[in-house]
Amino acid sequence: MIEVTAGDMGPGMMSGGPGGHMVMMRLQASANSVSAGQVSLLVFNAGALTHEVIVLPLHAGQGAGERPVGPDGRIDETGSLAEASQTCGPGAGEGIRPGTTAWTTTALQPGRYELICNFPGHYTAGMYTELGVTSP
């Protein structure tokens, strides 16, 4: 099981991030890599805002945080493999409320994946992390 923490500094609180970008949100996973097969994510929302975690494959040459963002502040979720966004429950829902958990389990093949929060503006604020999946 991978534990994922969704964090934010709350509304109106921002700090300077790498490259001079303003960052106020993050996703942090307890492991950067897992073996292929059934993978469970347990997501804790340590922030003040509602969040979610979606699993998307990364294509060759694509890095975490490089997906195009639409005018609505969200990325295209086409190809999503799993979602943890139900407060105190498994799978998809309306979001993980502050101080609560959600979880999801999915089968992952060897490759590179990105865990993201796709609430408007959260991805561009730094809510993504890469997960490598290796052969068993």
Rank of each mutant, 00 (worst) to 15 (best):
M1W: 06
T5G: 04
D8R: 03
M9W: 04
P11S: 09
S15W: 05
G16E: 12
G17A: 08
G17Y: 03
P18L: 06
G19I: 12
G19R: 14
M22C: 07
M25V: 00
R26G: 05
A29K: 00
V34M: 03
S35Q: 10
S40R: 12
S40M: 09
L49S: 08
V53F: 08
L56T: 06
L58P: 12
A64K: 09
G65I: 09
V69T: 14
G70P: 00
R74S: 06
D76T: 01
E77N: 07
L81A: 10
L81H: 02
E83S: 11
S85H: 12
C88V: 09
G91C: 07
A92R: 15
A92W: 03
A92I: 11
E94L: 12
I96F: 02
R97D: 01
P98S: 11
G99T: 14
A102I: 11
T105D: 13
T106P: 06
A107V: 14
A107K: 10
L108F: 04
Y113I: 12
E114I: 11
I116A: 05
G121N: 13
H122F: 15
H122Q: 15
Y123V: 11
G126Y: 02
M127F: 01
Y128I: 14
Y128V: 13
Y128R: 07
E130A: 15
E130D: 09
L131K: 01
T134A: 13
S135V: 07
S135A: 15
P136K: 08
